[in-house]
Simulated scan of single mutants.
Amino acid sequence: MSVKSKLTALASGVLLTAVGGISSALALDEITVAYFLEWPTANQVAQLEETYDKELGVKVNWRAFGNGNEMTQAMVSGDIQIAYSQGFVPFVVGVSTGAPLKMVGVAVTYAENDLCVVRDDAGITKDNAKELEGKKVATPIGNVTHYKLLRTLDHLGVDVNKVNLVQMNPPDGAVALTRGDVVMACGFGGALSRMREVGSPLMTGAEQEAIGINTFDIISVTESFAKEHPELVEKFMAVTEAANAAYKADPDAALPTIAKAAGMDEDATKSTLANFGFPSAADQKSENWLGGGVQQMTKGVADVMVEAGGMDAALDSYDQFIDPNYLN
């Protein structure tokens, strides 16, 4: 069976349980979904082969954006109904400042791509992490990486008030770690790879995820779209679930299509996907995710951003902006 046949069959099976029928209120001819080029995800087989169009019963336009804040602006203006793989921080900033958005799922996780690395010659591991007290640690301040560092130190019994946190973006942090100016640096992407040349992660991404410290992009929708067309949101999530399952079953078969949709060559696509995870709907509804963990993390990240001066004020609660009920 071809990848497309598998995907259509899986999507149809999920949709039978997800949606009992099409509401008469559905009158849309088309919707527009925001996404990123050069950011390969399992659902792009369904994107390129128009499985979303077939199962939703409307034309699905895919519009590429440069960053998550631009996605928020387009959603507020009404140009976009769904944002796929929107960054978590742009979502937090958006809803904190009045953007009418809802998080309805997790698009992709990449825990191993956002870590804190300790110099090998420091002799510090998660088992004796208290030795970080009194030492310099480089981290970007006021974002998810900073928040994860605080959660990690707390989990390991380190008094963060005794750690000298130094504001450094990941490239600068990598240089400082290499020179020995700091004992640990936190970062992501290419800078993280350079950090690994002289050190090892204090905690791996898998270890962090096990205690609810997550790194991820989200699937968000406008509140009006979710309210007026809940069946379309459910169907979109069902097709995504099926696409993720099909990819997990045979990633090599899906690779050429994903690479084409992402605008990348196959080697680069495969390398990027190796560090990505696509959690199932059941996983997303669990306690560590939309069952409570994400709500807690949203509030925590917002508070960190306010303290760092990156946002004027945080809300008392973010529960109203996170809805797992479309993950059927």
Rank of each mutant, 00 (worst) to 15 (best):
M1H: 03
M1G: 05
V3Y: 09
S5I: 09
S12N: 13
T17M: 06
G21N: 04
I22T: 09
A25D: 05
L26A: 08
A27L: 10
A27Q: 08
A27R: 12
L28I: 07
D29S: 10
A34W: 00
Y35G: 01
W39M: 03
T41Y: 02
T41N: 09
A42W: 09
Q44E: 12
E50R: 12
T51L: 14
Y52A: 07
E55Y: 10
E55G: 08
L56T: 04
G57S: 10
V58A: 03
N61D: 12
A64H: 12
N67T: 06
N67D: 05
G68D: 00
A74K: 15
M75Y: 11
M75F: 12
D79A: 08
Q81I: 03
I82N: 05
Y84M: 07
V92R: 02
S96K: 09
T97W: 13
G98L: 15
P100D: 06
L101Y: 10
K102L: 13
V104A: 08
V104I: 10
A107M: 04
T109W: 01
A111C: 06
N113C: 06
D114V: 12
C116I: 00
R119Y: 00
K130M: 03
K136F: 00
A138D: 02
T139P: 04
T139A: 09
G142M: 04
V144T: 12
V144G: 03
H146E: 01
L149H: 01
R151M: 09
R151N: 04
D154E: 14
V160D: 06
K162N: 02
L165C: 14
V175F: 01
V182S: 00
G187A: 12
A191N: 10
A191S: 15
M195Q: 01
V198W: 00
V198I: 02
S200G: 03
L202R: 00
I211H: 05
I219L: 01
E228V: 07
E228K: 15
L232Y: 05
L232H: 05
L232C: 07
E234A: 11
A242E: 08
A242P: 10
A246L: 02
A249G: 02
P251A: 02
A262R: 01
A262I: 05
D265Y: 02
D267R: 15
T269H: 14
T269V: 08
K270H: 13
K270Y: 10
S271A: 13
N275T: 10
G277R: 01
F278L: 08
D283Y: 07
N288H: 06
G293C: 11
M297A: 14
T298I: 07
V301D: 05
A302N: 07
V306R: 11
E307M: 13
A308S: 14
G309H: 14
D312P: 15
A314R: 12
L315V: 06
D316V: 07
D316P: 11
Q320A: 15
Q320M: 10
F321R: 08
F321Q: 08
N325Q: 14
N328S: 15
